[in-house]
Amino acid sequence: MRVAFVGKGGAGKSAISGTFARLLARRGHPVLAIDSDPLPGMAYSLGLPHDDAPLPDEAIEDRPDDEEGPRYRLRAGLSPVEAVERYAATAPDGVRFLQFGKVRTDPRALFRSQFAFRQIIRELPVDRWDLVGDLPGGTRQPFTGWGGYADTFLIVVEPMAKSLLSARRLARLASSGDRPVRVVAVANKVTEAVDAEHISRRTGLEVVAAVPLDPVFAAAERAGKAPLDAAPDSAGVQAVSSLVDRLEKEHPRMKVTP
């Protein structure tokens, strides 16, 4: 399974994707959570302390002038799988967590790490980890190559006019690439029974989960805790669990560890 959560800023991508990754891992799947947001987010929802650290310089080398390819790359001899095993953090439930680092003031400080990060994801063997990505809000990253690993885009949509508009644009962009991907919606902060249907009608997307507006789930966010730790029995966590059930059934190729 290779999924990426996208949507407008504030739609709830990190909380849902972090919870999704851990629930998937609890069912025995090897999960790599991929955070390509230059700002902190997914780590909180996984239950990890946030950390700015980029991939270290020892993992990266400059491309020699007489060779073609990206400016920086993984050090010769370091495979993408080894890089994950060595440099990805380990979150609760055994989820591995990979990021290229977080920006403080100058994003150029992360260039080297970004090149290596993208190479790792591009070249990972498909059967090693299930990938769960949390892409930054908006449209810039998901469809400029950063979401290239995903076979399913989950657009997190709130039942609000602005969020619906963003979702329609994201859906168009997701479907306009040169490879087939599945694009579906996750309705978030749902308060009324008709919300999911409304989102489906307005976006033209299949709604694969409806996560209710849940004060307990929201309180976890306010406390900076993973919803799965702070509110394991909440309606929000239950809804994400149902989403895991559904995608698990729909991805027969997904590897399950013994």
Partner: peptide, 19 residues
Amino acid sequence: EPTPKSVEVGSRAAAIVAD
């Protein structure tokens, strides 16, 4: 917003504005 995540992002924004 009153969440650690939002406060952290806001602090970084303030640092960039100052810088």
